[in-house]
């Protein structure tokens, strides 16, 4: 887990926010408290790592509205809702909008802690994935035009002889480009290369 991960708690009820913070900190996490959605939005949300714990009902900008903002600015930041109300429609909407969990107060503390840890893991994975994709992309960017062409033909399942015919070059030249590409992409096997290309394509 990345060290800079924090739990961002947005709740207009100071006491409850304080209790959540104290509970999470007693398990070794770091927290930040915000009394309103506006307070939270004053920072660069896209740069945050960790997860957000949101109260549904807050004056002015409510939890659901803030969730949309967060999703737009930082889609990797998981949102856990806490609510004192049994608002089924709001819960459904929150989950549809991609909330990780919708906890109803009073909830079991362990449930809450587990949920936050799950959110943090998810964020961690997302961050790792993002890092990995960007590193793959960097390797792809380092390929020459010919190497890039040959990589796609290889991953599409074409044999060397077929590629040579298609590009009107010698099979030997294809082999050299192929070796260079595998080296640049840091792929030990064809399967690894295929996976990288798929990941990069999915992300793009």
């Amino acid at each position: 887990m990345a060290a800079e991960q924090r739990v961002y708690i947005v709740d207009d009820d100071r006491d409850v926010a304080d209790a959540m913070s104290m509970l999470l900190e007693s398990t070794g996490l770091q927290t930040r408290l915000y009394a309103s959605a506006q307070d939270f939005m004053q920072q660069d949300v896209s740069q945050l790592a960790g997860c957000v714990v949101l109260d549904v009902r807050m004056p002015n900008i409510n939890g659901l509205e803030l969730q949309q903002e967060i999703r737009r600015d930082n889609p990797n930041l998981p949102v856990v809702f806490v609510s004192g109300h049994g608002d089924v429609p709001i819960a459904v909407q929150a989950m549809k909008n991609g909330a990780l969990e919708f906890l109803q107060k009073p909830f079991r503390d362990q449930e809450f802690i587990d949920c936050v840890y799950r959110a943090l893991n998810l964020n961690n994975e997302a961050l790792n994935h993002r890092n990995r994709v960007s590193s793959i992309q960097a390797r792809i960017d380092s390929l020459t035009k010919r190497e890039y062409e040959i990589m796609h033909l290889i991953t599409a399942g074409n044999l060397t002889k077929v590629i040579a015919d298609k590009l009107n070059i010698s099979p030997r030249t294809v082999e050299i480009h192929r070796a260079r590409t595998m080296e640049k992409m840091q792929a030990k096997t064809l399967a690894q290369l295929v996976q990288m290309v798929v990941e990069a394509e999915n992300h793009a």
Binding site: L23, G84, K105, I113
Partner: peptide, 13 residues
């Protein structure tokens, strides 16, 4: 629920 939730969490803490 607010104070009850808070109490429970403080106790766990």
């Amino acid at each position: 629920n607010q104070p009850l939730t808070a109490i429970s969490m403080y106790a766990q803490a």
